[in-house]
Simulated assay, not measured.
Amino acid sequence: MKKISIIALALMMTAGTLFTSCEAVKNTNNTQRGAGIGAVGGAVIGGILGNNLGKGGKGALGAVLGGVVGGVAGGVIGNKMDKQARQIDQVLPGADVKRVGEGIQLVLNENAVRFDTSKSTLTAGAKANLDKLVAVFQEYPDTDITIFGYTDSTGKADYNLKLSGERAASVRSYLVAKGIASSRFKVTGMGIADPIASNETVEGRSQNRRVEFAITANAKMQEDAKKEAGN
């Protein structure tokens, strides 16, 4: 699971730099340290990144970092997210799975979720790939899922914003039709915002036409984690 391991290493290196000057960490017990490190960038690391980047940031990454619980309870959540991320990576190896903080950022480009040109209709291939996620989402019912739709910069910005929202809504509708509770979902159209590649090339535009998921703990998972942690 190379992508997730790389993200975890980067987060742990970031946290390590900050922890070296933090006397409080020296006074934590093994369980507390294990919660922060063993959760692959879970509670403690997520708290640091959340504070640095701010809550309510744009897109899936901002949504994930905005849901940090922190402490040992955050580590419990992080461990559960580790397992879910591994399963997503196994069933859909073409996806970009990133374990960040106490959640998961899942990026599906055109190779995974493709739409007909200028339409919000899912192709047969896109449906087949979303089907692979259904079982994972059903196994972890105590998560909230925000879906962000993106386009490249071709065409008018207002049209792309509308289209991206419709595409994100199509993904939600399909997953709901497959049995995932509609209450778990939010959708947001981002249009041409936050490109992850250059819009000057065909390949770059293809990467920018994507759907992202922010998978975070819902209220029940957070409360259960606090109980498990003894809070």
Rank of each mutant, 00 (worst) to 15 (best):
G41F: 04
G46M: 12
L106C: 07
L53Q: 05
Q222D: 03
T188Q: 12
G155D: 02
D142C: 14
G57K: 14
V211I: 06
A95N: 06
E228K: 09
L53H: 05
A217N: 01
R114W: 11
D96G: 09
V69C: 03
L61Y: 14
M190T: 15
G155P: 00
E23G: 15
L175T: 04
A217C: 13
A229E: 03
N109Y: 01
E223H: 13
A193E: 03
A60W: 09
G59R: 05
T17V: 13
A15L: 12
G71R: 01
I45N: 03
N218D: 02
F185E: 01
V187S: 07
T123W: 05
V76D: 00
Y140K: 01
K186P: 00
V76S: 00
I180M: 05
S206C: 06
K156E: 03
V97K: 08
G179R: 15
R172G: 13
V176M: 02
V76Y: 00
G36D: 06
M81F: 05
Y140L: 01
Q105D: 11
I77D: 01
V107F: 00
G230I: 14
I48V: 13
I215R: 00
E102G: 10
V171N: 04
I37H: 10
D96V: 13
G94Q: 08
I37V: 10
M1R: 08
K220N: 13
I37F: 10
T28A: 08
V40R: 02
G78A: 06
T28K: 11
G34A: 09
L161R: 06
G191H: 09
T151N: 07
D224N: 14
L130F: 04
A193F: 11
L108A: 05
K55L: 09
C22R: 12
R210Y: 03
